[in-house]
Design a protein around this nucleic acid. Structure first.
Length: 273
DNA sequence: AAGAGACCCTGGATGC
DNA sequence: TGCATCCAGGGTCTCT
C-alpha cells in the first residue's frame, strides 16, 4: 500500500508518539509478522528498550534502539500503525503490539499479513540492497542512464525494482511516466538521454508533491491519527481507466505490466514515435 | 544476470 | 440473494 510519501508521512507522525518511551513487552498477536530473529529473542531484545531515532529508507521504517540495534518495519500493502491507550479494544487485524511501560500501546495492524518486523544489529542486512533515494542527488539522469543502458525490461517494471531506485510503487510509477510522457512498456534501453532526464525530474516532482499532500489515500492508507492524504485528488492517470486524459482528452488505458495494473494515456505516451 | 510468473493473504467490488 | 471471479499503494522465490 504505502509508497515513499506515505511511509514518510506515517513515520513523521509516529516519531513523536514513540520516541524515548520504554518498551515494557511485545505481544505478537500473529507471530509470523516477526521475520527475525525468532520470536522469543525478538521479544527479549526489545524488553526495556527505547527508540532513540527514526529513519526511512525506501519503503522501510527504521527505529534505532538505545542499545544500537535497529527495529525495522515494512507495511507492505495494508499495514497501519497507531498509538493508543492499552485499554483500547483490539482491532481484528492487529498483528503486533509494543507495550510502553507508561500504559500506552504502539500497535501494528495489517489485514493481509504481508507486513514484517525485523530486529537487527546492522540495518544493511535488510536495506543494504536498495537503490538510491529518489529525492537524493545521487539519483540523477547519469545514474539512471547507466542502469537503463543494459536493461530490456519495460520501464514501468524497472521503476518498481527497489534495487534500482527505492520507494517508488505502482501509483507514483504511473504518475511519473505520465508526467514524463513515456509509455510504460518502453524497454529501459530505448529511452533517450532527454527522456531519462525528464523521467528523473518527473519522479522528483511527483514524489515531492505527494509528500506535501501527505500521500495518496485510495482505501487502506491512513496516517497514525486516522486522517487521510490528499494526493488522490492530484492523480492524472492512476485508476482512471476510460476517463479523459487531463492533457488531451483521450481515454486513459489500463494494461498489466509486471503483474501490476498500469495506467497511461495512449496519445500522450505513445509506444512509437 | 535479467526477466517472467507464481506465491504469500484477506476482503471489497463486480458479474452472472 | 448467492456464488464465482477479479482486484488491491509490495516483495520474494523459482524457473528459464
Amino acid at each position: 500500500m504505502p509508497e515513499l510519501p506515505e511511509v514518510q508521512t506515517i513515520l513523521d507522525a509516529l516519531t513523536p508518539l514513540i520516541l524515548n518511551r520504554e518498551i515494557q513487552s511485545v505481544t505478537p498477536l500473529w507471530p509470523p509478522v516477526i521475520d527475525r530473529p525468532e520470536r522469543v529473542l525478538f521479544q527479549q531484545w526489545l524488553q526495556g528498550r527505547r527508540v532513540i531515532e527514526t529513519k526511512r529508507r525506501g519503503k522501510y521504517m527504521l527505529f534505532r534502539l538505545d542499545d544500537d540495534r535497529w527495529l525495522i518495519l515494512h507495511l507492505r500493502m495494508t499495514g497501519k500503525m497507531r498509538v493508543v491507550n492499552a485499554s483500547e479494544p483490539l482491532r481484528p487485524h492487529d498483528r503486533l503490539i509494543f507495550h510502553f511501560s507508561d500504559g500506552d500501546d504502539w500497535r501494528f495492524e495489517d489485514q493481509r499479513k504481508f507486513g514484517r518486523a525485523y530486529l537487527v544489529e546492522d540495518p544493511a542486512e535488510i536495506v543494504g540492497k536498495l537503490g538510491p533515494e529518489p529525492l537524493s542527488d545521487t539519483f540523477d539522469a547519469n545514474y539512471l542512464a547507466r542502469i537503463l543502458a543494459r536493461r530490456t525490461a519495460a520501464i514501468k517494471s524497472l521503476l518498481l525494482d527497489q534495487r534500482i531506485v527505492a520507494g517508488i510503487g505502482n501509483i507514483y510509477a504511473d504518475e511519473s511516466l505520465f508526467l514524463a510522457r513515456i509509455h510504460p512498456l518502453r524497454p529501459g534501453s530505448s529511452l533517450t538521454q532527454d527522456e531519462i532526464a525528464a523521467l528523473v525530474a518527473a519522479i522528483k516532482t511527483i514524489l515531492a508533491q505527494a509528500l506535501t499532500e501527505m500521500g495518496t489515500t485510495l482505501r487502506d492508507y491512513r496516517r497514525p491519527d486516522g486522517s487521510t492524504g490528499s494526493f488522490q485528488n492530484s492523480l492524472q492517470v492512476f485508476r482512471r481507466t476510460g476517463e479523459p486524459c487531463p492533457s488531451c482528452g483521450a481515454p486513459i488505458q489500463r494494461i498489466v505490466v509486471a503483474g501490476r495494473s498500469t495506467h497511461f494515456c495512449p496519445r500522450e505516451q505513445p509506444l512509437h514515435g
